[in-house]
Structures are given as structure tokens and as C-alpha cells.
Amino acid sequence: MQTILYARVSAADQTIAHQRKQAEAAGFKIDAVVADEGVSGVSTVLAERAQGRRLFDMLRASDVLVVRWVDRLGRNYANVTETIREFMRRGVIVRTVINAMTFDGSTTDPVQMAVRDALIAFMAATAQAQAEATKEAQRAGIDHAKGRDDAYLGRKPSYNRAQFDSVVSMLDMGEAVQAVAKATNLSRGTIYRIRDSRGEAEAALARWGA
């Protein structure tokens, strides 16, 4: 049995090392890391990514696939749910760092199966909803900036796109502000501003071209 961490980073300022550090801090003993860099989870499904394809060849029954959260597998509801189910059909256990979720296809209890499948559906739907909300807020910010004659950008955000996405994801998963601040190297004040005015925080990034 092996434990493989799959990491996906879609921007240069995200790091695979950080995702591994989070996994190990959560108690996972990682045997190998498979990672795709510069890949969007919205437009590219797991099976079409260079390293994502390797997972389907590497993983065997009783192996454990670790991901920071299900959005590392993708941002499309139908694809994420089918991907997790395919791994479970192969006997692979899928576990998440955030919220410590475990998706195991070996259970035969109908109630446990129903709860498991409902969680998969909910988390996949949340991943897609987050991606769509981020895209919409970005469009709104760009439109707002373009519509202003003085092209006033406001103060440059103290966070980048990768940090913003991580903050939003962790907050939506119920992480405490202090934990989010530590994980993203941002101040608690910044986390509170993103939490309380997410749309404006996203718009500020868009105005600065992030």
C-alpha cells in the first residue's frame, strides 16, 4: 500500500511544497508526490493533465490518494464526482487534508454509502461554485475598472491570486481565521477583509490585473 499526494498548482506563486507540508502536518506519511503545475482545474480535467494521467496508472487497490481538497482534482461537478467514484471502483481510498474527509468504496452499508455519496456530491458542487463565483467577481472587477474615467485602482492588495483562492477555499471549509492566516502567510486583518467583503477583495485583484 502506498500513499500518494496529488498536487495541482495553477499559478507560479503557488507551491507544491506547501501542499505537501500541509498534508504532512495533518498526519499523512507521503510516499510519493505527483503534481501538475500551471494547470487550471476549470478547463482541464484530471485525466487530461500530464501527471493526472499517471495517477490512473500508478494507483492500485488499497492505495491512498491524498489531495488538499477536492478542487485539486477539478472544478467541474460532473468530472470530480466521476473521478472520485472511478478511483473508489479501483479500490483506491481518497482522502482530503482539509476537513479530513475519507472516500472509500469498500463499504457495503447502504446508509454509509448514501452519506459518502452525498458528501462527494456536495464537495464537488462547492468546488465548481467557488470557481464560478471567482470568475464572476473577476469579470465584475475588470468591468468596474474599465468603466471609471480616472482608472483609479485603489490600494494594491496585500495578497495575490493564489493566496486569495486559498483563503476563500479554507474559509468555505470552516477553517479558523488564525489557521488561514498562518497557512497563507497573510495577516488576520487581511483574512477578515476577504471574509467580510469577498466581492470587493476579488474586484481589487482584478483592477490590478491579478
Score class of each variant (00 low, 15 high):
residue 1 M to A: 11
residue 4 I to R: 03
residue 5 L to P: 01
residue 7 A to T: 02
residue 12 A to K: 03
residue 14 Q to T: 05
residue 14 Q to H: 07
residue 15 T to M: 12
residue 16 I to W: 06
residue 17 A to H: 06
residue 17 A to K: 12
residue 18 H to R: 04
residue 18 H to M: 12
residue 19 Q to K: 14
residue 19 Q to Y: 06
residue 20 R to Q: 08
residue 22 Q to T: 10
residue 28 F to K: 05
residue 29 K to I: 12
residue 32 A to W: 02
residue 34 V to M: 15
residue 34 V to A: 10
residue 36 D to C: 02
residue 44 T to A: 11
residue 48 E to I: 06
residue 49 R to P: 09
residue 52 G to E: 12
residue 53 R to I: 07
residue 55 L to H: 00
residue 59 L to A: 03
residue 70 V to I: 01
residue 72 R to W: 00
residue 72 R to Y: 02
residue 75 R to Y: 04
residue 78 A to W: 05
residue 86 E to T: 14
residue 91 G to S: 05
residue 92 V to T: 02
residue 93 I to Q: 01
residue 95 R to F: 00
residue 96 T to A: 00
residue 98 I to D: 02
residue 109 D to A: 02
residue 111 V to N: 13
residue 112 Q to P: 09
residue 116 R to P: 08
residue 117 D to N: 14
residue 117 D to Q: 09
residue 117 D to M: 08
residue 117 D to G: 10
residue 118 A to I: 10
residue 119 L to P: 04
residue 120 I to M: 05
residue 120 I to Y: 02
residue 127 A to C: 02
residue 128 Q to L: 12
residue 129 A to M: 08
residue 129 A to T: 01
residue 129 A to Y: 08
residue 131 A to M: 08
residue 132 E to R: 01
residue 136 E to L: 14
residue 137 A to W: 15
residue 139 R to M: 07
residue 143 D to V: 12
residue 146 K to P: 06
residue 146 K to R: 14
residue 148 R to F: 13
residue 151 A to P: 10
residue 152 Y to E: 15
residue 156 K to M: 15
residue 160 N to C: 04
residue 164 F to S: 07
residue 165 D to C: 09
residue 167 V to K: 07
residue 168 V to W: 02
residue 168 V to I: 05
residue 169 S to F: 11
residue 169 S to G: 11
residue 171 L to P: 09
residue 173 M to C: 05
residue 175 E to P: 05
residue 176 A to T: 12
residue 178 Q to W: 13
residue 180 V to W: 08
residue 182 K to N: 14
residue 185 N to T: 10
residue 187 S to L: 12
residue 188 R to W: 10
residue 194 I to K: 14
residue 194 I to H: 09
residue 194 I to T: 06
residue 199 G to E: 14
residue 199 G to W: 11
residue 201 A to S: 15
residue 204 A to F: 14
residue 210 A to G: 13
